[in-house]
Write a protein that binds this DNA or RNA. Structure first.
Length: 558
RNA sequence: GCGCCUGUAGCUCAGUUGGACAGAGCAGCGGACUUCUAAUCCGCAGGCCGGGGGUUCGAAUCCUCCCAGGCGCGCCA
């Protein structure tokens, strides 16, 4: 509806230009929005004010010209008013709103789907954990965010690829191997040394006993044995990560191995190209890339003086590989502790001829865990951290995902275990789910009374006479533009907020019937009941579609 | 020291990309079940939007300077 209105306004301006009512100028950026104050209409625009300077006329006068031009056409509009310093306030005809509701019922699971992305190919890389240990809460937050964003983008017509980058080339994997090998040796010789900075978690011991059963490490020299342990650990941890993510309802299309990437020779190609452009130089026996040419604060080493490539080098190669695979845009979801790398990666990509905004990086802040009013401190090195798996087992996937998604990614998240465990309405996920279950229950009741949805919703929707009902219809109409906004802002947290607000409006409406029987959905008045069932069906559809985009179930009973 | 993020009710956070009088949930107090599910709803109370200055018709939102907190500033990965 908002998009329609914007379109109408543009058309209207064009006709004002043609008739000479307004001087032809470029159309400025203006907004159509839903005012907080209902007295300001169902929609409002600041268009006249944005035109004031180029037209050299007072906003209210311009508004008058526009209103005059609108008056003739557009059956959509019930009322247009000039208000305040030069706003236009719109009221849409009731029939139009009812048409939207009828459409929601027809579209069902497709309501909100769009071709906004026009098939644009976009690569979303997220989680990308080192396969050196189980996933922790930070990964969970990234998984929920990335997965939900992907669901929304593809619902809106983007062709999305979900990718997990496996950091399996560096010293971390070697250290994993050493840690496992050490634990294996300690099974016989408790005095065997444990590597400095090694992985302390109990899962290392599990891996050690697993490998003991299938592999004769005794027969190998230590170096080979560590190698074997590393490969075994990598493999097992990847399996575990993959199955944990699947349990978390997060799947990936592509798993890229850093090791394979390094072996592919792409790195040499990148270096050659960078050298050819003159953005590579040697100093102190190392190779440097001139990232300062593209907004970085200092140049960066990509090959150390010992001949080893830095992590940064493979990162550049990796991102160029994404580009070569034909994606017109890339989104990375990183922990906020990596923010220092954003500019240098972008700089390196620009040095290779890419546009700066080809890559956008979403940084997610830390997750802190709270229980009984105190913070549970976690340390990966010491192996004292709560895993995503434990959290899922403890509070369930629905609550975990919802609580991760409900906050903006750039503010730190306090995860309250006590709250997450609660099976009541304090827990926002149940509040929303309950609204859905309640509607399902209403339909069961209606069926008992022999009532169901009408064949032709438009014939009965005129019976939605309560202001609460009409406001609900208008609220449902916002869903598509909400999703469009999320595609642009990469802020899925707006969806749970919207759903919570919708659930609240529904619960409020439902409760009208507890005092006044005529306000119940199912009454003896058949046409009115049918109209209200339409409304309930519309709400149910939006709740279902919205929850699905969050990866949260919509239960029929609770 | 430099860079990024954050600062809104006692607590946790929204705030439609600069709009009209600042919102919600929890916590507190007081109410509503012979019901389509009370996992719900209604009412009361609670604010110098960290602070100062600026930009304009208009600022929680943009600029600038402070203050406080988090994170990052390796030829580590």
């Amino acid at each position: 509806m908002k998009a329609k209105l914007e379109h109408i306004l543009r058309q209207c301006l064009e006709s004002c230009f043609e008739t000479g009512g307004l001087v032809r100028t470029p159309i400025p950026d203006f907004v159509v929005e839903i005012p907080n104050n209902p007295e300001h209409g169902q929609f409002a625009t600041n268009l006249p004010m944005t035109l004031a300077s180029s037209q050299k006329r007072p906003p209210r006068e311009i508004a008058g010209v526009i209103v005059e031009a609108l008056r003739e056409k557009h059956p959509l509009l019930e009322k247009v008013e000039i208000a305040g310093p030069g706003f236009l306030n719109f009221t849409i005809r009731l029939e139009e709103w009812n048409r939207v509701l009828a459409e929601i019922i027809t579209l069902g699971p497709d309501y909100g789907r769009s071709d906004l992305g026009a098939g644009e190919r976009i690569l979303v890389e997220f989680v990308s954990a080192n396969p050196t240990g189980p996933l922790h809460l930070g990964h969970g937050r990234g998984a929920a965010l990335g997965d939900s964003l992907c669901r929304i983008l593809s619902f809106c017509g983007f062709e999305v690829a979900r990718e997990f980058y496996i950091n399996d080339a560096g010293l971390q994997i070697r250290l994993l191997g050493e840690s496992i090998y050490s634990r294996w040796r300690q099974r016989r010789d408790p005095a065997a040394p444990f590597p400095e900075g090694g992985y302390m978690g109990g899962y290392i011991e599990t891996l050690a006993s697993e490998i003991d059963e299938i592999d004769a490490l005794d027969a190998l020299d230590p170096d080979e044995a560590v190698e074997r342990c590393a490969e075994f650990g990598r493999q097992r941890m990847l399996e575990e990560i993959r199955s944990d993510l699947e349990a978390f309802r997060t799947t990936f299309d592509i798993w890229v191995s850093e090791k394979a990437l390094v072996a592919s020779g792409l790195l040499d190609e990148v270096l050659e190209r960078t050298r050819a452009r003159g953005d590579l130089y040697e100093q102190d026996g190392a190779w440097w890339i001139k990232t300062t040419l593209f907004g970085d604060d200092k140049d960066r080493v990509i090959r150390k003086n010992d001949g080893q490539f830095t992590y940064f080098a493979t990162d550049i190669a990796y991102h160029l590989d994404k580009w070569k695979r034909g994606f017109t845009r890339a989104v990375n979801i990183w922990g906020a502790d990596h923010h220092g790398y954003v500019q240098r990666v972008k700089a390196a990509l620009m040095a290779n001829g890419l546009e700066e905004d080809w890559l956008s990086v979403i940084l997610i802040q830390l997750v802190k865990l709270w229980e009984g009013g105190t913070e549970i401190r976690m340390s990966k090195r010491a192996g004292t951290y709560v895993t995503l798996r434990e959290l899922m087992d403890e509070v369930g996937v629905d609550a975990t995902r919802f609580l991760f998604l409900v906050k903006n990614h750039d503010s730190p998240l306090d995860f309250d275990l006590d709250l997450a465990r609660k099976q009541d309405s304090d827990n926002p996920v149940y509040y929303v789910q309950y609204a859905h279950a309640r509607i399902c229950s209403v339909f069961r009741k209606a069926a008992e009374e022999g009532m169901s949805l009408p064949e032709e919703p438009l014939e009965v929707l005129g019976r939605l006479e309560l202001e609460e009902e009409r406001a609900l219809v208008r609220f449902l109409a916002r869903f598509p533009s909400l999703l469009a906004d999320v595609c642009g802002s990469h802020e899925p947290h707006r969806v749970p907020y919207y759903l919570t607000e919708l659930a609240s409006a529904f619960h409020k409406y439902f409760n009208l019937g507890t005092r006044i029987p005529e306000h119940r959905i199912v009454t003896r008045d058949a046409p009115r009941t049918q109209a209200r069932l339409c409304l309930a069906a519309g709400i149910r559809t939006v709740l279902q579609n919205g929850l699905l985009l969050l990866g949260v179930h919509a239960p029929e009973r609770m």
